[in-house]
Nucleic acid binder design. Sequence first.
RNA 1: GGGCAUUUAGCUCAGUGGUAGAGCGUUCCGUUCACAUCGGAAAGGUCAUAGGUUCGAUCCCUAUAAUGCCCACCA
Length: 726
Amino acid sequence: MTADFSKPYDPKEVEGHTYEAWLKAGYFNPDQLTTKGKPYTLVIPPPNVTGSLHMGHALNATIQDILIRKKRMEGRRALWIPGTDHAGIATQNVVEKSLRKEGIFRHELGREKFLEKVWEWKEKYGNIILDQLKKLGASCDWSRTRFTMDPKYQKIVAETFAHYYKKGWIYRKERVISWCHRCRTSLSDLELEYQETKGSLWFIKYPLAETAGYVVVATTRPETMLGDSAVAVHPKDPRYANLVGQFVMLPLQDRKIPIIADRRIEKEFGTGAVKVTPAHDMLDAEIGNDHHLAIYKIIGSDGKMTPEAGSLFAGLKIEECRKKVVEELEKQNLIEKIEEYRHNISTCYRCRTPIEPLPSLQWFLKMDDLARRASIAVNKQKVIFHPDRWKKIYLSWLKNVKDWTISRQIWWGHRLPVYFCENKQEENFIVATTPPKKCPFCQNCEMRQSEEVLDTWFSSALWPFATLQYDQRDFKKFYPTQTLSTARDIINLWVARMVFSSLEFTKKIPFQNVIIHATILTKDGQRMSKSLGTGIDPINLINLYGADATRFGLIWQAMKNQDMHWAEESLVAGKKFLNKIWNASRFVLERVTDAKFKIATNPKFSARITKQDSKILKKLEVIVKNTDQNIEKYNFGPALHDLYSFFWHDFCDIYLEVAKKQLEDPKLKLQTQKILLHVLATSLKLLHPFIPFVTEEIWSALIPAQAGKSTTQKRMLIIESWPKKR
RNA sequence: GGGCAUUUAGCUCAGUGGUAGAGCGUUCCGUUCACAUCGGAAAGGUCAUAGGUUCGAUCCCUAUAAUGCCCACCA
């Protein structure tokens, strides 16, 4: 198809068939490239299968596409691996919700049937986001599309677990963990989200056991008093010095509990005396452990009070229980006062339900060694963050990281490769990557695989190498990858974990550079979210303006800031710019009629060079150098601004006008034609990674202008050589 | 409680130790010769505030303020 220059540039007539042409040519797959260059690999941060493209994805995909297209043009065997993440909790919730609309409940369905439904859902909707990336022009190798629940991927995950277990780094233990009673699963520290909430601070009187009087404790959660096993004060708090060692009678439970001293108590908070609930508070659990306090599990995994809470409260929901406890205490005149209080409560990052700390038997991964090595990798600049400041986030998390709770009590995910003996105790289990044939404990049971699944991030942590290990030849050739581009909110959740996982399993860093791009906010600085109605759908922008203009708009604003306040004006600028390129190309095509020359990488212009000629050639040299350096330094916004200014102002405003005159001078005509073609061709190459569609389309029209090349010999711009400084 | 970022034109943002820039918007002029998704011109800024370093600061330093984000066991 030949470009129709009689009309303004219309992306709708170009983008579809151009993408098809790229796919058909097969250039997204490095095996199809004739180049012998060094491999260059990117892995896409796998979007959730439940997701649809948002602005952040669009920006990130554009950044990666710029990198991969430039490297491909440089002659590297460029591979960009696409794929999706099974996103355990998120996906399970989405599918559960959609089933509920049909009146189907997960637990009625049962595990296997439910998982069938999830797979159905995945088959139906799971590739939407990848198709959206295609619309944006992403030049991923779709033949290598990966999914974190592929059989091969599952195998690698199981092997990883077994490896850690063999090393003694995975252990199972009952511990107070963060629990979401809506998702019915444990969560890791990073999966908590803090929300400032206004609540109350209740001051409760605990009568002394042996003498008259009482101790007043302050709490935001009066219901947890039912599980108290001590009152703690700071050892150097004079107010309570003589009370330490004595006992109080816990109201409502009629339980005698000690007053203990612990340095972790803040004297300034409340009354300085704190109730200790070892089962339902992280700090209290530690204190309880150190002081050998009894554990009363009064809240169950369903978010309701257990029998241990007492007959008056058992079965109540937490909020109901709180009311009831306060009522009862008031009846007994044990509430001294109630203050208003604002504080942060932790919630589940998937469903925003307040999380409940409770003791639970979970699997953990030891972090000491892994964290230490991941820190060294960044400290020694083996892995480099761009901008540099983000390494602080990474390092500070690793410095204080606790062991990772890797088990989740949901159904959708990688089931733990752990098998229990059916006949003997729960402690009798083995870790195996394939179902064992014979039970080593009782010799004759069918071993039962653990019902639990792994944290989604456990499997995404393997992404850079697992995706390449489907075929060992790929792994040898393309690993490690070069650059990872992602959002700042998953630096620890994902990036850090990829670094230590890769170091452990491949002995290599997974990537050398990490780009942390800006977070896109609305123009007035609000978070873009569907529920708030503040989100912008990039697909709408593509439909309205085209993919090139959308990419332009995103990159135009891509500076090294934390945030980007989205301004659609830049997209309008992009649209105009595309038209400008279109028309300038038309001009060149109309005037370069002699067609006695071809587009050379570094043509010579010896004869009759005018002042204006050398000026534009000089500027071209500068822009070639600057564009290259800007991309290498990940300065995408500045790169595009410079290109824009060069093309529009230096080339169109000035040189094209000069050329009009020079073309009328027979002595200058040929040389001017050569220069026009050279500058245009080079500009198209430089612009191609940013706006691939329009440049490819124009290129296809430019090629016939080269003498001696038939249309069958056409090279597409996507694999043309990247301009080099002479 | 700690950390990070931001503060420059109406809006979104670049930028440099020495007359302040872009895109979009606004106003005026201009449709033969690539493009009206255009060309030419103009208006519009105490570069957050206060000190300091300097011959000279929007830029470097120190405070302050506002806004946003992250981290932390303040019950």
